[in-house]
Amino acid sequence: MAEMTVNDTNKDLPNDSPHRARTSSLFGWIKVMKKNRKAQVGFIIFVGFILVGILAPVIARYSPTATNFPPLEPPNAQHWFGTTGLGQDVYAQFVWGTRSSLIVGFGASAISTLFAVVIGMYPAYWGGYLDRVMATFTNVFIVIPGLPLMIVAAAYVHDSSTLTMMVIIGLTGWAGRARVLRAQILTLRNREFVWAARLTGASDRRILVHEILPNMLSLFMASLMYGILGAILAEAGLEFLGLGNLTGVSWGSMLYWANNGGALLNGAWWWLLPGGLGIAMFGTSLALMNFALDEVTNPRLRQMSTLSRDRIVRAWHALRGESFQ
């Protein structure tokens, strides 16, 4: 679909290269994103958060753990987001929290996407017994509820380092996406271009990397992004239950301390507000970019009108055909 929409503004695309499938799906995504307002807004928010995370040491103004400010101050010129009950600067916590929440989100998503690929994609390509076992394994993991499993695992582990959190979240969050990737492989592995590659004697590895993967890039990106959102929500959930690293600063631990430090009783809305808003905004930016991806994989979502003229004509023929019978 995306190849057909290539127009002269994109002359730099190598249309006749052997990697056309790859360029069409990745550039197709970028192209749809260029046209899609929602995706643009999402992209801008996304980049904004990344910048905040990277520049945390520069823009934080204060240490996020320093407790030498007056407690429970509403937002003012000194403390842009106010202070916590312990006299910490909420703005500094938000900025540093952005960094650590994003790190856990990206790390856990990388782990779970890796699992989704290995368990969902590879067996599906070869098919047979291994695929059936892995598909059942995946389906079992889909129905076992994720957060309770993470809670139990985290409670046994007794170690709340960033790496441990990433591994726990990553290991429990791959199943849904493995199924989506598997479904895609199943439709791709018998397409003409894959058979053509097979008949020319390409190795399985070559087919997977050069023929199938490029066509799954958009799905793969979607998987990665949903993984990040899921991981950040999961981390915030675990931290809220006191299972995270509560001496560190993240969006999740900000919520934990706001709840357990009396933000509600003192009406300290400024203490409660930023952490969750960060999660919701960042999650929204990921989802908005995913809309553009959906439209690449499903062109029908992109159509402006279902009643184009040739459709009406076709319907007329259908009507006539019926009346003749």
């Binding site: 929602k38 959102l229 929500l233 915030a236 959930g237 809220f240 919520l255 706001a258 709840n259 933000a263 509600l264 009783l265 009406g267 809305w269 409660l272 507000l273 952490g275 969750g276 808003l277 999660i279 919701a280 905004m281 960042f282 999650g283 929204t284 990921l286 989802a287 908005l288 809309f291």
Partner: peptide
């Protein structure tokens, strides 16, 4: 779609705490 995408990304505990803060406390 944009509105419910945003609400879908709100952590449950956060929404609950906000409602508690405003409507209950």
């Amino acid at each position: 779609t944009t509105g419910t995408t945003f609400t879908g990304a709100i952590p449950h505990q956060y929404l609950g705490l906000l409602l508690l803060l405003i409507l209950s406390y």
